[in-house]
């Protein structure tokens, strides 16, 4: 009996092991190293000299002091909030709207539209970035500028990502990132809608519901959990995403301060300019803490526990 139980335990661990190894190597160990580094004065990758020295919360003091006093760091802080909030809205709302639209159009149009919206996801980040680099480019060559010039909306080219601070750069990074994320929500939510029995929609139609009323009163309430899942997922991935903004900033398409979200700021601290890995580690740790906290809050709001235990549907 005991032997049987212990062998079952072994089986369980054997199944979990590959996933655990990956999580430990690529998440837990780096996290511990990061937290440790944030308590050292490590800079210029001079590990021999700095990595063993501990300086307490000095990096964190420096970080909060910068947030409070350095306008460029404050800009980064503000940009992160606006960027994450607005892009999240674009991602979730855009995904929801597309999912609902695809529900009402025929299958052929549907699959063509879905494929188009998947393109940003499928194309390499650099290629995708380059497309929008030329679209928003500040010279007359830029697509948007040449279009507006021809239509007579503007009389000289505008550097969209550098002008109208902070709204210009914010709009560009939100637009570019928003477009990438929309497809995720679209896929999850449209498959959720497809799983709703057709009778619900027919019943509502017979009762006189318009398309809008069907969306609002029948479809959306039934995919509430999926919407919340997409929101949580996108919130956390937006907090830590920096690839697209990194390219746009380094190509000088957008203003550096107002085009840099926190994750990119962490990267900049560690790998460019000041090469202050200790400070970067502190900023990174802060990001992990905020992300963890927001994740917990959203799961609490969603009632994730209830979702897991409560029996739903027909009994």
């Amino acid at each position: 009996m005991i032997r049987e139980r212990s062998s079952r335990k072994w089986e369980l661990w054997a199944f979990l092991a590959p996933a655990l190894v990956v999580v430990v190597i690529f998440y837990v160990v780096p996290l511990i190293l990061t937290v440790y580094t944030s308590f050292t004065p490590l800079r210029n990758w001079n590990i021999q000299r700095y990595a063993t020295r501990l300086i307490g919360f000095y990096n964190y003091q420096k970080l909060f002091h910068a947030i409070a006093n350095d306008p460029s760091v404050r800009a980064v802080f503000l940009t992160t909030a606006v960027f994450v909030g607005c892009t999240l809205l674009v991602n979730v709302l855009g995904g929801l709207i597309l999912a609902l639209l695809t529900f009402f159009v025929d299958r052929k149009t549907n699959s063509i539209a879905s494929t188009i919206w998947l393109l940003p996801r499928m194309s390499p980040i650099a290629v995708y970035g380059l497309v929008w680099y030329y679209f928003f480019h500040g010279s007359g060559v830029g697509t948007l500028n040449s279009l507006f010039l021809r239509l007579g909306f503007i009389d000289k080219p505008i550097a969209w990502g550098q002008a109208f601070i902070p709204y210009g750069p914010w709009s560009v990074i939100i637009f570019v990132n928003g477009l990438v994320g929309v497809s995720f929500g679209m896929i999850v939510l449209s498959s959720a809608i497809k799983s709703i029995p057709g009778e619900f929609v027919i019943a509502a139609r017979v009762d006189g519901a318009t398309d809008w009323q069907i969306c609002r009163r029948v479809l959306i309430p039934q995919i509430k959990w999926h919407i919340m899942y997409v929101t949580t997922w996108q919130l956390l991935s937006l907090l830590t995403s920096y690839a697209h903004t990194y390219l746009l900033v380094s190509w000088r398409l957008v203003n550096k301060s107002y085009g840099t979200p926190w994750a990119l700021y962490v990267y900049d601290l560690a790998f460019t300019g000041v090469f202050d890995q200790g400070l970067a580690a502190a900023a990174g740790t802060l990001l992990v803490l905020v992300g963890g906290l927001l994740g917990l809050i959203t799961l609490r709001i969603l009632g994730f526990g209830r979702l897991m235990t409560e029996p739903r549907g027909d009994i």
Partner: peptide
């Protein structure tokens, strides 16, 4: 449908959960 004033009862009842 809405201008026909018909009531419809379904096999699976289609009650909104």
């Amino acid at each position: 449908p809405k201008e026909r004033n018909v009531g419809l009862v379904f096999q699976n009842w289609a009650l909104y959960p």
